[in-house]
Each structure stands twice: as structure tokens, then as C-alpha cells.
Amino acid sequence: MAGRESMQVGVRAQDGFPFSAECFGLHEMLQLSPRQSHHRLLLLFKVVSDTEAMETLLEDAFVLFGIFTIFIFFLKVAKCLRYFVLTKWFGVPNSFFSSLGEWAVITGGTDGIGKAYAFEFAKRGLNIVLISRTKEKLIKVADEIEQATGRKVKAVQVNFTKRDIYEHIEENLKGLEIGVLVNNVGMLQTPNPCRFLEMTDIDETIDDMIAVNMVSVAKMTQLVLPKMKQRSSPQSEKAKANSANKQLHL
């Protein structure tokens, strides 16, 4: 009986079956001969050492994975810091804006933030399309930008409270290589802040606010974005490179 059990243990060891401490009970150990007991102890030590080696290997693998993850994280942080530090100290180069396209389209560009955007993009080498509702302001700001920067300015007069203006805008944007769109136009319910229910002509005011503050953003993006995407395609980049090479040869 003991010989058969010893044979089974040997077969299990050769087949690679795992052993646990429960396989080697003290009562059974005492019933075995010294040689069999020694054989079982060797098997037990081998299983324990193999388990410890596997645990060590797994620990090392997790440590290496953690180091690799932290390294990738710090690379991304360093990249972000490099971008912010360089742009803060040296600013974005003008070539970046001109590489996007020749024109910048700015809605509500005759006052405040929109006007400031127009001047800054013109200083960085872009031509400007101003879209606003007041013709006198458009002419005045366009002249100021042209005289200050020497860039071209195109003025488009529309009222963004209307819904039928976008075909007119599209006609005026045809053939322009637009690199930047600034959806700046907006309106408040009244010149001075007031409670919602205190608005005059509340139904008309709500419709106007939706048309100016929300519809204009979606519609202007719909007009401009497809051409931007088309120019950024690999085929377009290849065509630009071929054109540049031809000009060099000429």
C-alpha cells in the first residue's frame, strides 16, 4: 500500500501536478519509511520554492509595469509643460497661423473681444473676414485693420437674428482658404442684466437669443469646417507638396 502511494506520488511529480502541504500529512509521514519521507520532503520543498519563484516573478513584472506607466505619464506631463513654457515665453510662431489657411473668419468682429481677435490674427499674417450687422462699424474696423497691419479685410453685413442669412455668408466665403473660425457673435436679453420674466417681448427675445448664441455657432461651423477637413487630408497635403516642388523647379 505504501509502495503504491509512493508510486502515485512519483507519477504526479513527473506529470507536473501541484502539491500542497495537505498532501503530506504528519500521520502519513510517520507511516512511511525514511527514504519515502525524504522523497516527499524533497517534493514539498521543490513545490514551495517554485511557488516563491513564481511570486517573485509576478512581483517583478508588476514593478516593471508600474515603472513603465509612470515613465509614460511623466513624458506626457513634460510634453505639456514644454508646450506651455515655450508658448508663454516665446509665443506661438506666426508661421503656425499661416499654415492653417490664409483667412480668419470672425463673427461679431466689430466690437470688444471679436475686434481684438481680428487685430491679433491680422498681426500674425492672416487676412480677415468680419461678419456683423452694422455697416458703418464694419467699414471703420476694416480700415483700421488694413492700415495697422497691411492685411486684406473683407466685410460681410448680416443680422444673425435672421435664419436666412447663411446662403449670403456662404457666397461671400467662396474661394477663401479659411484656417480659423471665431464664433464670437452673441447677445444678452437686455443691455442691462434683468430677471428672466422681466424681459420685454419675451418670445421674440428668446428666439433672437437662440438664433444668435446657438444657431450661428452650428451654421457657421457647418459652412467652414468641411473645407478645413478637406485641406487637412493626406491627399491635400500631397498636392500641396507637389505644387511646392513644381514652383521650385520653375
Score class of each variant (00 low, 15 high):
160 F>D: 02
200 T>N: 12
12 R>T: 05
137 K>S: 06
178 I>L: 04
179 G>Q: 00
128 I>F: 04
74 F>S: 11
58 L>P: 00
47 V>W: 14
41 L>G: 08
45 F>L: 10
1 M>S: 14
207 D>E: 15
69 T>V: 12
226 P>H: 09
156 V>K: 12
113 I>P: 03
186 G>D: 05
138 L>N: 08
127 N>E: 06
200 T>C: 01
185 V>N: 00
64 L>Y: 09
212 V>W: 07
82 R>G: 01
196 F>D: 07
95 S>K: 13
249 H>C: 07
97 F>T: 01
210 I>F: 14
149 T>G: 04
201 D>W: 05
210 I>Y: 12
197 L>T: 10
229 K>E: 02
21 A>C: 10
227 K>C: 08
64 L>T: 13
31 Q>A: 12
31 Q>D: 11
197 L>G: 01
87 T>V: 00
228 M>T: 00
198 E>R: 13
169 I>H: 03
134 T>Q: 10
218 A>W: 12
237 E>R: 15
23 C>G: 03
170 E>N: 15
43 L>H: 14
19 F>Y: 06
212 V>S: 04
146 E>V: 06
206 I>D: 01
127 N>G: 01
159 N>K: 03
216 S>R: 09
134 T>N: 13
97 F>Q: 00
157 Q>E: 14
196 F>Y: 14
232 S>G: 03
232 S>Q: 13
49 S>R: 15
112 G>R: 07
211 A>T: 01
82 R>H: 13
147 Q>I: 13
185 V>R: 00
175 G>K: 07
153 V>N: 04
233 S>W: 03
10 G>W: 13
198 E>D: 15
203 D>H: 06
207 D>C: 09
5 E>V: 01
94 N>P: 03
94 N>S: 09
68 F>N: 09
233 S>I: 07
134 T>R: 13
122 A>N: 01
236 S>P: 05
28 E>G: 04
67 I>W: 06
87 T>H: 13
55 E>Y: 10
244 A>P: 04
186 G>E: 07
220 M>Y: 02
22 E>A: 13
216 S>M: 02
163 R>M: 10
205 T>M: 07
132 S>L: 02
13 A>F: 12
28 E>W: 11
